[in-house]
C-alpha cells in the first residue's frame, strides 16, 4: 500500500467512525427505553422527525434559538409523558411483541401528526456549525461530524454519570435489572417510565437537530432508525456504551466495505452490509457485544 492509498484508508476509516457516532446518537434513544422497560421503541425515528420539525418551525416563526430549543424540549418531554400514560401504561405486562407493535403504530401516528401540525415542506436547519472540512496531514476531516461526535460524547458521558451517580439513575438500573424487585422495594415504576420516555424525547431532539442539519428537516429523518438498528444488534439493546462502540464499528465497517468491497458487487452495498454484520453477531452473540446476558428459568 503506497502512502496515498494509506492516507485514503485512514480517511475512509475516520469518515466511517464519525458517521458511526451519528448512528449511535439515534441508537441511544432506543437503549434508554429498552433498558428500563424492555420495549423496542420503533417510534424513536418518528420522535426524531417530530423534534426537528417542531424546532425548525418555531425558529422559522421568529423564535430565538434557545427559546425554540427549550420549547421543543418541553414538547418532547410532554410527548414522552403522553406516550407513557396513553399507550404503554394501559399495555403494562403485555408481551414484548404487543408493546413493539404498539410503538410501530405510534411511529405512524407521530409521523402523521408531525406533518399535520407543521406541514410537508422541506426545511433548512442551520446550527451555525461549519460544513467545510479541515485538512490534517492531507486528510479531509468534517468539522460538522467532529462537533456532532463531541456532542454525542458529552451526551453519553452525561447519561453514564446519570445512571451511575444519581438516585433516579440508580432507580432506572434497578428497574432494568428486575421490575418486580424494584416494585417490592417501593420504586414507582410509572414515574420511572415517564422519566425515561421524557429522556428519550430529549435524546430524540439532539439527534433530530444534528441529523436535521445534515439532511434538512424532512420526512426522511424518520428513516434514520434504519441506521440505528444494526448498531443496537451489535452493541446490545440495553447498553449506552455498547451503542457508541457499535456505532463506531458499524460506521467504519460499512464505509470500508463500500469503498473496498463494494466495487466487486457493483457498489451500493453499505445499506445491507451493516445488517449482514449485525446478523453474524446475532448468531454468535445474541445479546450483542455489551448486552446483558439473561438467565431465565422455564
Amino acid at each position: 500500500m503506497d502512502w496515498f492509498a494509506f492516507l485514503f484508508f485512514i480517511e475512509v476509516t475516520i469518515g466511517g467512525l464519525l458517521s458511526g457516532v451519528m448512528y449511535a446518537l439515534v441508537a441511544i434513544g432506543f437503549v434508554l427505553i429498552y433498558k428500563t422497560s424492555g420495549v423496542l421503541n420503533f417510534a424513536q425515528g418518528a420522535m426524531v422527525l417530530f423534534a426537528a420539525l417542531t424546532f425548525v418551525s418555531l425558529t422559522e416563526q421568529g423564535l430565538p434559538f434557545l427559546a425554540a430549543l427549550a420549547i421543543t424540549a418541553a414538547v418532547m418531554a410532554l410527548l414522552g409523558l403522553t406516550i407513557e400514560r396513553a399507550v404503554l401504561r394501559p399495555l403494562a405486562n403485555r408481551s414484548p411483541m404487543t408493546l413493539f407493535m404498539a410503538t410501530l403504530g405510534l411511529a405512524y401516528v407521530i409521523e402523521g401528526a408531525a406533518q399535520l401540525i407543521w406541514g410537508t415542506a422541506v426545511h433548512r436547519l442551520d446550527l451555525g456549525i461549519s460544513n467545510e472540512p479541515f485538512i490534517l496531514g492531507g486528510i479531509f476531516i468534517s468539522t460538522f461530524d467532529l462537533i456532532a461526535a463531541l456532542i454525542a460524547g458529552v451526551m453519553v458521558a452525561a447519561l453514564t454519570a446519570f445512571f451511575r451517580f444519581t438516585r433516579t439513575g440508580l432507580a432506572f438500573r434497578a428497574v432494568a435489572d428486575d421490575q418486580f424487585a424494584a416494585l417490592a422495594v417501593g420504586l414507582r415504576l410509572d414515574r420511572i417510565w415517564a422519566a425515561v420516555w421524557t429522556a428519550a424525547g430529549v435524546v430524540a431532539l439532539v439527534a433530530g437537530l444534528l441529523w436535521g442539519a445534515r439532511l434538512g428537516v424532512q420526512f426522511a429523518l424518520s428513516l434514520v432508525v434504519l441506521k440505528a438498528l444494526p448498531v443496537l444488534v451489535l452493541g446490545g439493546f440495553d447498553s449506552v456504551l455498547g451503542a457508541i462502540v457499535a456505532g463506531l464499528l458499524i460506521g467504519a465497517t460499512e464505509k470500508l466495505a463500500e469503498v473496498y468491497i463494494g466495487p466487486v458487487f457493483g457498489g451500493g452495498i453499505e445499506g445491507w452490509f451493516a445488517y449482514a454484520v449485525a446478523l453474524i453477531v446475532l448468531l454468535v452473540r445474541p445479546t450483542g457485544l455489551f448486552g446483558q446476558k439473561l438467565v431465565e428459568r422455564y
Partner: peptide
C-alpha cells in the same frame, strides 16, 4: 465512473470519498 447510493441516500461519505479518489 458510475457510483450507486443506496436508498434513501441519507449517508454518502464513502461515495464522495470514492469520487475524490
Amino acid at each position: 465512473v458510475q457510483i450507486e447510493v443506496p436508498h434513501p441516500g441519507s449517508e454518502q461519505q464513502s461515495q464522495w470519498l470514492q469520487i475524490r479518489q
